[in-house]
Design a protein around this nucleic acid. Structure first.
Lengths: 365, 365
DNA sequence: CTTACGATTGAGACCGGACTCACAGTGGGT
DNA sequence: ACCCACTGTGAGTCCGGTCTCAATCGTAAG
């Protein structure tokens, strides 16, 4: 039936038409289910198509419908379960509306992202979802916008651009969780993030990610409201691979006036931070309190279970896909829902070891 | 410069040609960098293209080159870090050779898989990588093969089909790890897998996944070589969502002659199994020994750290992509490397609680 | 001063569908 | 018996590139 190997040219409508003894136009109509076709012709064409196991060439179809039924997704790292889950939300939703997904990884590098966006545009995807590496360098996103192709941002906003964006409001949980730590007695709270930055953090430094900026703002406000100030020297950016994260962790825990609590900005960082803490033979929460962003299943299995800030990642993926598809289908109305994160108190936060409460200031009530 | 909104028709070679005052053919040559073009024309064309910010339509290009520079990847679940990592290996490698990846999720459902493969074929991808849900129902894969489109299988083989396949040899580690458990004194060892099966496991049941079949075979041989028999009632298939996994775990640990060790077939199962064990207030390894497939970072953070079977997942993704690209580029030679898994002994395996060593048989040396 | 050959160049075919247009039948309305 | 509105149908165009082919040009060889 189907023996001879490769080189076989694909079956086209023309082939089917010939086999069914009708014109190419009629065959196309019967197959594409449009226009007027007599019952007789329809049957013959369908039979012939079946017989030849004809399959339409989606490329050709896309070319003159202008629709590819494909959306492009650009993320920093699928290996990170955060994006894995979000991607799942996107693909599930896309599939429901008949869209496929082209996925591109950027390793959080801007050059790769710019490239990815261009490639997707060139492939004429119907729209794209991007988790931008930077909230400030956004010319390439502006270009997408200009090209008129639907675009939705995920996780991070782009400063000053009018683009549908699906994010979590982070300031509030950051505030809440910092208050929580402060009330437990912590003053030296470290925050470790992968966010790249040319200069070390200090008040007024413009952070390149809206997400991280919100988190730091929330922390800052919490300290202020407690009559304290955020220890800027403990806001650590540029945490890269596992090794660098470990180094940073050791550093903040061994410095003269060490951190008594550590906040990990995402699940990947958390892994290395906890590992480093264990390697130093410190225990959580007796020696160090720990809190992390993202609620992965494994955080319930450690002892103690970790206190986390849960984000509705899957739902955000769904929302992003829905917003995009809405744009693609030309109905702009519905507002993108706003998501909030939740502090889940488990057992990785306790009082600092040497409870030398600061003499001058006490948490305001 | 780029004001008016959407509806703008894309710039084509024809537009560029007109602007540069040359024929469409010449413009195409200059842009595509082929054929003979005078320096003068080249400059004018390139300038015009730049000016109009021309971008080639990859769809159109694909249509008559027959190459889409895209490969399709079909996996059971990207959310599962196992596939996340593998996908990362694939995309990294693909990118290096200039290919993009279309990713489709199947939820391990055959119907979805058949569909996914068809969609990718219709989109004329240059080749596909599939992690087949079933090793036995493989007509759709056969069809891909027949169509002459390059195909590489990942993780699981397809019985009787001649297809490049990237897998881990599992029998040996399964054997080794089972011997390890037996030598620690375990006789009642449970194995929990998501693999779907119409009937409960027993000797001779044909398992639908080559991977799982190998694991069970390895266990079986280990028992045999120790003068014992594999407790068939503890080989549990059809573990689905978190809840069902928990139920199964409770079941095997509460039955009259309960399991003293549990082996989780993948990271997702492991999560629920460990959780169930903790909920039952049993501790690892004092009350139950535990062992799992896949070495995720978090397995080092639990207490005790978990004993795992590590698979070179990322490398396998790379190998699959390389094999596929090799096929696409028409050089068939190089053999697909064989991968092996490694038992990493940490501290989740100990002696069974009530060390009632079986009277009749002792582990053979 | 011819002739020949490589470099240039433009016209147009082609990839595989979707879709426009003109034309043939057919049955109903009057 | 005559006109009209439809249904059916085939020829051919178009989408936006790639690529073939033949014509043109310049110039080095004879």
């Amino acid at each position: 039936m189907s023996s001879n190997g490769s080189r076989r040219r694909d079956i086209t409508v023309a082939d089917v038409a010939k086999a069914a003894n009708v014109s190419k136009a009629q065959a196309a109509r019967a197959l594409g289910n449009y226009g007027a076709v007599s019952e007789d012709v329809r049957e013959r064409v369908l039979a012939a198509a079946e017989e030849l196991s004809y399959r339409p060439n989606e490329l050709a179809r896309s070319m003159n419908t202008g629709k590819s039924n494909t959306i492009g997704v650009v993320v920093g790292d699928i290996e990170n379960p955060h994006f894995g889950l979000a991607t799942r939300g996107i693909t599930d939703t896309a599939k429901k509306s008949g869209f496929n997904v082209i996925l591109i990884n950027t390793d959080e590098e801007r050059a790769a992202e710019v490239d990815a966006v261009q490639v997707l545009l060139d492939k004429r995807v119907d729209g794209l979802i991007v988790a931008p590496a930077s909230s400030t360098e956004t010319q390439h996103l502006q270009r997408v916008q200009d090209s008129g192709r639907p675009l939705v941002l995920l996780d991070r906003a782009a400063d000053g651009l009018q683009i549908d964006t699906v994010t979590v409001e982070m300031t509030d949980v950051a505030y809440e969780s910092t208050r929580y730590l402060i009330e437990a007695g912590h003053r030296r709270i470290a925050f470790i993030s992968t966010l790249k930055s040319a200069v070390p953090y200090s008040e007024g430094v413009q952070l390149d990610s809206s997400q991280i900026a919100e988190r730091v703002n929330g922390m800052d406000r919490a300290f202020l409201d407690s009559g304290l100030t955020l220890p800027e020297d403990l806001v650590r950016l540029n945490a890269g691979d596992a090794e660098s994260i470990r180094n940073i962790t050791r550093e903040v825990l061994l410095m003269p006036d060490p951190a008594t609590a550590v906040v990990a900005s995402d699940g990947l960082i958390a892994l290395s931070v906890v590992e480093a803490i264990q390697e130093m033979d410190l225990s959580i929460p007796e020696d160090v309190s720990f809190l992390m962003y993202d609620d992965f299943a494994w955080t319930r299995l450690t002892s103690p279970p970790l206190t986390v800030i849960a984000q509705p990642v899957y739902e955000m993926g769904v929302a992003a896909a829905e917003a995009l598809i809405r744009q693609i289908e030309g109905r702009r109305p519905a507002a993108v829902p706003t998501f909030t994160a939740r502090l889940i108190r488990r057992n990785s936060v306790g009082a600092p070891r040497k409870s030398e409460l600061p003499s001058e200031a006490t948490p305001s009530r």
